[in-house]
Amino acid sequence: MSALFEFLLRQGDNTLVLGHRTSEWCGTAPALEEDIALANTALDLIGQTQLWLGYAAQVEDKGRSANDLAFLRDVYDFKNVLMLETPNHDFGRTIMRQFLFDAFQVHWLTALTDSKDSHISEIAIKSVKEAKYHLERSRDTVIALGDGTEKSNVIMQSALEYLWPYAREIMSDDAVDEEIASLEIAPLPSTIHESWLQIVEPTMRDACLKIPDSNFVHNGGKTGLRHTEHLGHMLATMQVLQRSYPGVTW
């Protein structure tokens, strides 16, 4: 598997898995406006997935399409970071997960707009507009709920504590990242950490939330080595049609 293909799968699987998770809120969000916001965010992420996995399929050049990559792979072929496959649990955790991802994604996609690979820079230019908009909402909502009632503060603090060990997997580097960086296709993900913190720390301060004092990071999602038990359940739902009726189209 080429480093470029692997890199593109990571981008596309992140947006696909978070997009699907977010879409699980459709029709059940706590308020109509939030229902619409979650569905629209999911839609943007699925749209970005089509671009990433579409290019991945083209790079792989084995006759597979973006749909094949999304619906005909199983758990260990997925290269998304673990945080994005964690269950929604409640609205607080969903919005905290979105914020921790958006804060990375805005800086990451901005960096990718300078990629030596023109197709990647085109996808980044398109996607970063949407990511900035997502960050605006997720940051405001994290602050509103953290600095809300006693109850909402407790829920947001517990969301942050649950997600914190997962949040920085996306900024860990491996051999694929190093090869991609040497080709000037993308910077090392770790170089985003500082600017990510510059968004996360003041937001948590404004939200009256305390960042856990731990540097432990759960790894294994982006390399595909070790996913959580949740991804299999999620894929069983997401891929049910292709599993029941292989090759079905409409």
Binding site: E33, E34, A37, N40
Partner: peptide
């Protein structure tokens, strides 16, 4: 502003 998202991806409420 009521909400940053609206009835379609291109609109806000």
């Amino acid at each position: 502003k009521i909400s940053q998202f609206g009835s379609t991806p291109c609109k806000a409420q």
